[in-house]
Write a protein that binds this DNA or RNA. Structure first.
Lengths: 188, 188
DNA sequence: TTGGATTCGTCCATTATTAAACAAAAGACG
DNA sequence: CGTCTTTTGTTTAATAATGGACGAATCCAA
C-alpha cells in the first residue's frame, strides 16, 4: 500500500484513539481528529465515510490482530500453545491504550459484544468436543467459555493490570486445558 | 506552507539528526535518511540538493532560532532582558540533541565557526561602545565576547549540562552587563 | 585490476493530500 | 422561537509524494 496512505491512517487512528481516551465517542469531531492527526479534513473522509466507520475499522483491525496473536497461522499448521497465549497478552499489554479506551468509553458499549463475538468464532474452531466435553451442548459451552475469557481480558485491561502477562497465561492456560480448548498434554 | 512539506521536512530533519548522533556525517547516506524518515528518496531530493544542503539548512534554521530566542523582535521594539536570555537557554536545552550532534560530530567541524559567526552578527548590533567600552577596538571586543559566549554555550551543551538554565542566566547576565552587551541597570 | 553491489542524482507518470469552497445539518444560546 | 456558530459531507484544481527507472559514480571484496 502507498506509504502516504499508511502514514495518514496511522496518524488519524492514533488521534482518534487519543481523543476517545479523553472524552466520549459522541463528542469527538472529525475536525478534532484531523487537527490532532495533522491531516487535512478531506483526508479523513478519503479513507473513512464517517466517524462510525473509523471506529468500526479500528475495532475490526484490532480484533483481527488479537485473534492472530493467538492463532498466527489460522486453521492450518501450528497449534496454539502457551507461547502463543503469552504473545496474546503481550499484544494486549502493548495496545492497552486502545482497549482501555474502547472498553471504558461510554459511547462505545458495543465493543464488549464484538470482542465476545470474535472469541466465539475463534473458540468454535478450536474446541475439542470429545472426552470431557462429549455430552455438552457445544453452543452453550462456547458461550460459557467466550464470556469467561472475555471477562478475564476486560478485567486485566480495565483494572490497572495487577498481574503480569506470564501470571495470566499460567492461570488461563490451565483453565483452557481443563476445558479442552487447546491440545491436551500428552501425559494424560 | 503546505502541510505536506512541513511534515516531510520535519521527518527528514529528525531522521538526519538522529543519524548524525549515531555516526559521522560522512557515512550518513540519503537512503538511510529516507528510510528512517519513512519518506521516498525522491522526496529528500525534492527539498534538498544533497546532504550538505540538508546539513546547511539545519544549521541555518537553528541558528536563526537561537538568535530569535534572545532578540525576539529583531532590531525594533523590546530590548533583551534576563527573561529573554532564559528563553535562550531553555531553547538550547530543548534542542540539546541537535546541538550535541553537530558540536560533537567529527564530520561537522565547521559548526563551531558558524555559531560564532551568528553570535558576532548579533553582538555587533547590541553592544554599547560608550562608557566602559569607549576606548576599545570594537572588532576585537566583539570577537572576544562572541568567543566567550560561544564557549559557554558549547561547554554547557557538550558537558551533560551540569548547571540549570537559571544558573547559566545569572552568571552570563552579569558578565554581559559588565561588558555593556545589554541595557545597563538604572541604578548605576 | 576486475566485477558486483550500493549509492547517487535525476527523471517520469501516477496517486494521495491539500486548501478552499459550498450547502445542509446540528448545536449553542439568548 | 430565531440567530449565530460549528460541524458535516462533498466537490474542485493545484501540488506534493510516491515508486520506479535510469546511467553514472563510488565502494568493496576477490
Amino acid at each position: 500500500m502507498d506509504r502516504r496512505i499508511l502514514k495518514s491512517k496511522e496518524a488519524i487512528v492514533e488521534a482518534f484513539i487519543g481523543l476517545m481516551a479523553e472524552k466520549n465517542f459522541e463528542q469527538v469531531t472529525i475536525n478534532e481528529i484531523a487537527n490532532r492527526a495533522n491531516v487535512s479534513r478531506g483526508t479523513v473522509y478519503l479513507h473513512y465515510t464517517d466517524k462510525f466507520d473509523l471506529l468500526d475499522q479500528c475495532i475490526k483491525f484490532h480484533l483481527v490482530q488479537l485473534i492472530d496473536s493467538f492463532l498466527p497461522c489460522g486453521v492450518t499448521g501450528i497449534f496454539p500453545s502457551k507461547a502463543s497465549l503469552l504473545h496474546t497478552f503481550q499484544y494486549l499489554g502493548q495496545h492497552a491504550f486502545f482497549y482501555t479506551a474502547v472498553l471504558t468509553n461510554k459511547g462505545v458499549p458495543m465493543f464488549r459484544d464484538r470482542l465476545k463475538a470474535a472469541l466465539l468464532r475463534g473458540l468454535d474452531k478450536q474446541i475439542d468436543m470429545d472426552g470431557i466435553n462429549r455430552d455438552m451442548n457445544k453452543e452453550m459451552l462456547v458461550q460459557f467459555l467466550a464470556s469467561a475469557i472475555g471477562g478475564m481480558i476486560e478485567w486485566w485491561i480495565t483494572d490497572p493490570m495487577p498481574y503480569s502477562e506470564a501470571d495470566m497465561v499460567e492461570q488461563l492456560w490451565a483453565l483452557m486445558e481443563r476445558n479442552q480448548m487447546v491440545p491436551q498434554p500428552l501425559n494424560q
